[in-house]
Write a protein that binds this DNA or RNA. Structure first.
Lengths: 237, 237
DNA sequence: TCACCCAAACTGTGATCACAGATCACTAGC
DNA sequence: GCTAGTGATCTGTGATCACAGTTTGGGTGA
């Protein structure tokens, strides 16, 4: 009935269910490392804490569990999985491969606008990291923003979703370590690799960009592995 | 208390919830193309058909929806998404990139046992495809078996999970097309590419193996795209 | 004959209840 | 003093109910 097709441009607003909200809340807890590997989770307690019934929490948890971000043991205990060193290495190799593709494509396809956004977030991260008293949580968030600003330019939606899931999976162990061992040299490495990546993206040099991100990922992983923060058996203490 | 450590070898039996079972049932429907893009799904009807309550179906659907294999519209209608041609192309490019990594690694790392298994499934697919009256459903399954036999040799668990999800997402449109247009030349291409891949894997030639699989994927996709089986708008008829 | 409207029958979402199994603290028995 | 047993209390899972919003079909109006 209504006149023109101006309406056709409406972004088809997405509905937010309580489950979605709970999912994001839990994701945030995991990504920020406040839920550490081995931590247990109770449906009822979580529901009470969030002020909802167990239903939305249940759905959110089952989604997280499907992604391997949470696991429910045969004892019916929900917890964030403790990764063996080998599993962590496999995850890191996967990340290097997949994120390498994304950043290589991004370097070759990025528009001027995207490059500007990447530069901006890189600068923001650098500023936070070099601050006299850096806010760790904020640095983590900015690091994530930078990576995804890059991946966002790869032109492949499905690939970005995959990477987001990988980050969710790696988040607890990485950020737990970051909480345990205040950043120090980690950030020095990250800053250098980020700078290399940005330069490579400016030059549309996909291979160099992928190498920089690969080094960024690998160095952070090595740092954690040498710290011995990962147990090889899944004991609890 | 119990004597020896024979118990330690028990495979830690995984529990199967009803949700898991429903999830597999729906996945199978989608992977085999019996649920086509645009088809709607009702929680209560599905539950009744499966002889369970809506709860397990709800959880399974929410998992599928999280993976983008199903979508629930703002109208609260569950359906398998209709992919635009562009979205399909992005999915195909992602598959080529990700599965390319897996097959390249598999070619370089495969053991003799894994190679034998790959050869076996390749032969099985060839036999079915060259049969006088090939069973389409079985051919689809064998094609899948072959691909995953290869990816299983890549040594990266997380990567295999990613690929499985990608297949689930691409399954409906690919298999719907396969149902609509009886195989014909499609299989001729597939046979050649599979043979090339197996040879490359025998020679531990990662690049060649990746190229063969990329061609396999791309040719199937081109076939579908030129058929015009994909709508560019998400209308319903 | 066509357009409109209203009511009945659906839809998914969320809350609540019921249940089997696991955990843990406590106590009875040696 | 230590172990084995036992009951209360927790766990996730599944079923059922309640609700608001949507769809749909039949009927009434012009």
């Amino acid at each position: 009935m209504n006149s023109t097709s101006v309406l056709a441009e409406l972004p088809l607003l997405e509905r937010r269910t309580l489950s979605d909200t709970v999912y994001e809340a839990l994701s945030d807890l995991l990504a920020s490392g406040r839920l550490a590997p081995g931590d247990r989770l109770s449906l009822r307690q979580s529901a009470a804490a969030l002020g909802v019934s167990v239903m939305p929490v249940r759905e959110a948890v089952s989604r997280l569990a499907a992604d391997g971000v949470l696991e429910v043991a045969p004892n019916r205990v929900i917890r964030v999985p403790v990764m063996s060193a080998d599993a962590f290495r496999a995850l890191v190799e996967t990340r290097i491969a997949v994120e390498g593709i994304a950043v290589a494509r991004a370097a070759e396809l990025r528009t001027a606008t995207e490059l500007a956004a990447i530069r901006r977030t890189e600068a923001a991260f650098r500023a936070e990291a070099e601050a006299a008293e850096p806010d760790r949580a904020r640095a983590v968030q900015l690091n994530r923003d930078l990576h995804f600003a890059i991946y966002g330019a790869c032109g492949l939606g499905p690939l970005q979703e995959i990477i987001a899931r990988l980050w969710l999976k790696a988040g607890p162990v990485i950020n737990l370590d970051l909480r345990a061992h205040p950043e120090r040299l980690r950030q020095g490495f990250a800053l250098r690799r980020h700078a290399e990546a940005v330069v490579a993206i400016e030059n549309r040099d996909g291979a160099a960009a992928a190498a920089a991100i690969a080094a960024d990922i690998r160095e952070a992983a090595e740092f954690i592995l040498t710290r011995g923060g990962l147990r090889d058996v899944q004991g609890e203490d």
